[in-house]
């Protein structure tokens, strides 16, 4: 958690989209930005990129209000996936409340996925977080491509871990919201148990999620 000010009735949360280079983290945020109503969220801020590769991070903020008057700001970040930007990843990961790991489904990327996940585990430890306890979801992106790992195989590998896994094609907007909703759901559970969002602020999970995820289609 970035900030919690009881007097100011303000809570700032951080979600991080992690994963290997070119797995589609920024695309996920772009799609979220496009799929959700402008109301309740800010604009997507894309910091300097080089050849479309994230160097720093991207940021998409969301704003929620609990019946108690507690204002919740939820900042969704991406990290740079390239190995060389490890220090930036550590910095972005600091005080994260939830992590979505965006894996690349292509067979050729199996090793990169593995290394990146190990890197996530290591860096979480570095910033004092525990991969066993932090809300975590996994997305296998690029399902629209050929030469990908079969879904059954993915599930066979990941199901024993108990981490929710989503198949997606971020470029086409499938699986993006599901991933985000599940991450928000898990994060809510985690925060609620500590800060009593429902008990103290009257903000139950349904309210939390419906404020956060307002599809454009619902609006129109």
């Amino acid at each position: 958690m970035i900030e919690y000010d009881e007097c100011e009735k303000r809570m700032v949360l951080k979600l991080v989209y992690y994963g290997p280079a070119l797995s589609g983290k920024t695309t996920n945020l772009l799609q979220l930005h496009d799929l959700l109503q402008p109301e309740g969220r800010g604009d997507l801020m894309v910091l300097d990129t080089k050849d479309d590769r994230t160097i720093f991070f991207d940021l998409l903020p969301f704003f929620l209000m609990a019946p108690s008057g507690l204002r919740i700001k939820l900042k969704v970040y991406t990290v740079p996936g390239q190995v060389k930007h490890d220090a930036t990843r550590k910095a972005v990961l600091q005080r994260a409340d939830g992590v979505a790991f965006i894996a690349d489904s292509q067979r050729s990327e199996i090793t990169n996925n593995f290394n990146s996940f190990q890197n996530l585990e290591k860096n979480l430890g570095f910033v004092g977080l525990d991969i066993e306890h932090i809300p975590l979801v996994v997305q296998f992106n690029k399902r629209d491509l050929g030469g990908i790992v079969a879904e059954e195989e993915v599930r066979r590998v990941w199901n024993p871990s108990g981490i929710p896994v989503f198949m997606s094609s971020a470029l086409h907007g499938t699986g993006v919201l599901e991933t985000f909703v599940q991450l928000a759901d898990r994060t809510y559970e985690h925060i609620d148990s500590r800060y009593g969002l429902a008990g103290n602020h009257g903000l139950d999970k349904h309210m939390f999620l419906s404020q956060l995820v307002r599809r454009r289609s619902d609006y129109s």
């Binding site: 970035i2 900030e3 700032v12 940021l59 700001k73 970040y77 600091q94 910033v127 004092g128």
Partner: peptide
């Protein structure tokens, strides 16, 4: 140590 780590926080308001 951790105190020098948190000189600034990505996302600080």
């Amino acid at each position: 140590n951790l105190t020098t780590e948190i000189e600034f926080l990505v996302g600080a308001e």
